[in-house]
Simulated assay, not measured.
Amino acid sequence: MRRFVRAIILLGMMTWGNVAHAETGIGREVYQFDQSHTNIMWFANHIGYSQSMGQFMDFDGEIILDHDQPEQSSVRVTINTASIMTGLPKFDAHLKSADFFDVEKHPTATFVSKEVTLLGDSKAKVKGEFTLLGHTKPLVLTVRLNKRGMDIQRNIHRTGFSVITTVKRSLWGMKSYLPFVGDEVKIKIEAEALIKQ
């Protein structure tokens, strides 16, 4: 449990201080996402036939883990909405249009944490505000710490976690093709973060 307190709030969810502090459990750690080992994926029902899926390729953020006061830990994530990718160029172009992400008017989506609650079993709930298409609404992430340890190649701490949540897109003003394209969109994040030097 102590290991979890040190790191899951690592996302608070989705960059925490000093390696010496990390080893003693004192103070704060600041992490940044390792984009080459992080995937932000979404899944949406397509008329009941299948789950369409895609991911965002460009994002940035900061995870602050406070060992002494876990409730003060936090996360901030900014996603470049134009980086959405399904592997189908025509579908990508449609998703970037005003029907969905309207990337010209709204080039980013953001999540900023407000509260972290430990659940046990290496899990936490991270409450925050998600901004999309100019609308800001509450969103809760369920976060699981997978591993925290020393990256022997870089000689700095690395932490990995899994995140799930569900977004009801109509609440953020994305109402095109309802109800044929599902309103509830599942978000799954597999992420790794490196301690900021």
Rank of each mutant, 00 (worst) to 15 (best):
A44H: 02
N45E: 14
N45S: 14
N45G: 08
H46A: 07
H46C: 08
H46W: 06
I47T: 13
I47L: 15
G48E: 14
G48D: 14
G48Q: 10
G48I: 07
G48T: 07
Y49P: 01
Y49E: 07
Y49D: 05
Y49T: 12
Y49I: 15
S50R: 00
S50Q: 01
Q51R: 00
Q51F: 07
S52Q: 10
M53R: 12
M53V: 08
M53T: 11
M53F: 08
G54V: 07
G54A: 09
G54K: 08
Q55D: 13
Q55G: 14
F56H: 01
F56I: 00
F56S: 00
M57K: 14
M57G: 03
M57S: 10
F59P: 00
F59Q: 04
F59W: 04
D60Y: 09
G61Y: 11
G61W: 10
G61N: 12
G61A: 13
E62I: 15
E62G: 06
L65H: 03
L65N: 02
L65F: 02
H67R: 01
H67V: 04
Q69W: 03
P70Q: 09
P70L: 12
E71I: 04
E71K: 09
Q72S: 13
S73M: 07
S73C: 08
S73Y: 08
S73N: 07
S73L: 07
S73E: 01
S73I: 09
S73V: 09
S74L: 10
S74G: 14
S74P: 09
V75G: 13
V75S: 15
V75A: 15
R76G: 05
R76H: 14
V77E: 10
T78L: 06
T78K: 10
I79N: 13
I79D: 15
I79C: 13
N80F: 02
N80A: 12
N80Q: 13
T81Q: 04
T81A: 03
A82L: 06
I84H: 00
I84Q: 01
M85R: 12
T86R: 01
T86L: 03
T86I: 02
G87K: 11
G87E: 04
G87Y: 07
L88E: 12
